[in-house]
Design a protein around this nucleic acid. Structure first.
Length: 306
DNA sequence: AAGATACACAACCGCTTTGCC
DNA sequence: CGGCAAAGCGGTTGTGTATCT
């Protein structure tokens, strides 16, 4: 069983990159470009490395526009807010932070921000219905003292997003060791599909799903909106409308967290009803859930993210 | 001063998605 | 339309460094 390796591990060098290798890769990409084939690149560049390794090294470290460290408060908020709304979709989160890579953001979250976010108190009326970051809870790793959703949060607050598919082999399994989190609310949960807009009203097997009274799905506008011109805020170019949307949604989720963003950015934007969805194949996911839940999907669902 | 422990980050692994034939 | 290869992605591990005892 198992997947064939992408390269001959016995022949290619592994481990940390030397400055010489970095320069070799950088030089090759500078003169020839990536060429659309990472597998062939190391051979062409004279590198004794796996193509995958070259790609990762370039994307996460050697690219000229990469920034390392020095995260601003605003970037922290963006990460926290997005993590709260979409979970560990690091590539998406990183795409909202110019110069940051998914790996970098992920590491930053796991090593610093997560701890920083944990003690955040719950505040604001929204938390009664949609707890935010303050609802971070103890690790729920399979190896550790596992804490289920129901252990972390009253059943009345548990989102229905944990569909059979999502709670099974899906990568959005909140009990994964990497997640290390107990998402104690709909907004905190990594939503695999638009069902995040619903909350359990009962934990019985015949669970009834009640639409959230607030326009939580409006957060989809964050992603659905065309990318506006970037503004430079605190040295970090972030899109005005994006921040506005994030601010509005972040406020909902984080009890004012996003509001600070708004203050920072002085940007305003009306919350939009979802004209599209965040995630790929959401229509299918919705359809899958629709079999279990007798509720109509939001209008305008698409099945692509961008 | 030395060993143990914690932390940060680079890199790897393997699954999923995408594009091409 | 199915199969395959490559790219993308998120979780996990490995390693170097800092701090503590």
């Amino acid at each position: 069983m198992g997947r064939a390796p992408c390269c001959d591990k016995a022949r290619v060098k592994r481990g940390p990159w030397s400055p010489e290798e970095d320069e070799q890769l950088r030089g090759y990409v500078r003169t020839h470009g990536i060429g659309g084939n990472w597998i062939a690149l190391p051979h062409k560049a004279g590198l004794n490395r796996c193509g995958k390794s070259c790609r990762l090294r370039w994307l996460n470290y050697l690219r000229p526009d990469i920034r390392h460290g020095g995260y601003t408060e605003q970037e922290d908020r963006v990460i926290c807010s997005l993590y709260a709304s979409i979970g560990s979709r690091w590539s998406i989160i990183a795409s909202k932070l110019p110069g940051r890579t998914d790996n970098d953001v992920k590491n930053y979250w796991n090593t610093k921000l997560k701890k920083k976010a944990m003690p955040m108190p719950m505040r604001g009326p929204h938390y009664h219905h949609h707890a935010g970051l303050g609802a971070f809870s103890a690790p729920a790793t399979p190896s550790g003292p596992a804490r289920s959703w129901s252990q972390c949060v009253p059943s009345s607050l548990q989102p229905a997003a944990l569909s059979p598919a999502a709670s099974g082999s899906s990568s959005v399994d909140t009990s994964s060791s990497g997640g290390d989190m107990c998402f104690a609310a709909a907004g905190m949960y990594q939503p695999p599909h638009p069902m995040q807009g619903f909350v359990h009203v009962d934990s019985s097997p015949q669970t009834v799903l009640a639409p959230m009274p607030l326009d939580v799905p409006a957060a989809t506008g964050i992603w659905a909106s065309p990318m506006p011109a970037a503004s430079d805020v605190g040295g970090v170019a972030l899109e005005d409308a994006f921040l506005a949307d994030l601010g509005a949604y972040g406020d909902l989720l984080l009890g004012g967290f996003g509001g600070q963003l708004l203050q920072d950015n002085k940007a305003t934007a009306a919350m939009e009803l979802p004209g599209a969805c965040y995630f790929p194949n959401m229509a299918e996911m919705w359809a899958a859930d629709h079999a279990h839940v007798h509720a109509k999907p939001p209008q305008g669902l698409c099945n692509t993210f961008t």
